[in-house]
Simulated assay, not measured.
Amino acid sequence: MTRERSDNYDDKKDLILRKAAALFASKGYELATMMDVAKACNASKSHLYYYFPAKEDLLYAIVKEHTTMLMSKLSNVHDMKATALERFERFVATFVDVAADSRNEQLVLTSELGFLPPAKHKEMLAMEQQLIDMLIGLLREINPDRMDRVEVETPYALLLFGMIIWTFTWYKKSGAIKPLELASHISDLFLNGFRSSRRG
């Protein structure tokens, strides 16, 4: 395959993934059909099947690409040479920024993962666990006394992830609060609590 043909293939594949993510996010994976996706792409059903033989392949590609990209960005933050607090705040800001820019993909990952076949579902859960482990490490650095029992580590991390992830069922970056400000509020609430003085 020539470079030009490869780029064209990738562009068409990306278009399908974006349109499918929007449909799955708004209509739900179960209700959205491959014909719906084909119409959204202004393409034939056979054209769609050339790229994705089954609807579950399309779902898998959406969540795998989104999670892989998110993991790459968060891993870079996690490995920065900075204090734990600085890396934590950058971690939250990066997560919020990625989710705001890829809201449909984030909603699909949040709500539709259970429709994957068992092996692929297990693979995605393993990737999510890597994100949880990164966050646990940061929280342990920030306050090891609070992370003194292994049974509380995952719940603390999931509380923060829940705060971020479910935000995108209602949040859109076109609103009054921009992603960076939202991330700052999330970090402040999680680390300092609602009754503490708000940072400048």
Rank of each mutant, 00 (worst) to 15 (best):
M1D: 08
T2D: 15
T2K: 15
R3M: 15
R5G: 05
R5H: 08
Y9Q: 10
D14E: 15
D14V: 10
K19V: 05
A25W: 07
S26F: 00
K27A: 10
K27R: 10
Y29H: 13
E30M: 04
T33I: 08
M35D: 15
V37F: 12
A38D: 11
K39E: 09
K39F: 11
C41Q: 04
N42K: 15
A43C: 06
L48M: 04
Y49W: 05
F52K: 13
P53Q: 11
P53T: 07
L59W: 09
L59F: 08
I62E: 00
E65D: 13
T67F: 07
T67E: 15
M71K: 11
N76F: 02
H78M: 11
H78C: 08
D79G: 06
M80P: 00
M80E: 15
M80S: 11
K81T: 00
F88Y: 12
R90G: 05
V92L: 14
A93E: 07
T94A: 10
F95H: 10
V96K: 07
Q106S: 07
Q106K: 02
T110P: 00
T110Q: 06
G114A: 14
G114Y: 14
P117F: 06
K120I: 02
K120P: 02
K120M: 09
M124Q: 14
M127Y: 01
E128T: 03
Q129E: 15
Q129S: 14
L139A: 03
L139I: 00
L139Q: 02
I142K: 11
N143K: 09
P144F: 03
R146C: 03
M147S: 04
D148Y: 00
E151Y: 12
E151M: 09
E151T: 08
E153M: 10
A157Y: 07
A157H: 04
L158T: 02
M163R: 11
I165S: 09
W166G: 05
T169I: 01
Y171R: 12
K172Q: 09
K178C: 04
L180C: 08
L180K: 09
E181Q: 10
L182N: 06
A183H: 10
S184W: 05
H185D: 15
S187G: 12
F190S: 01
N192S: 11
G193L: 08
F194N: 02
S197R: 02
G200D: 15
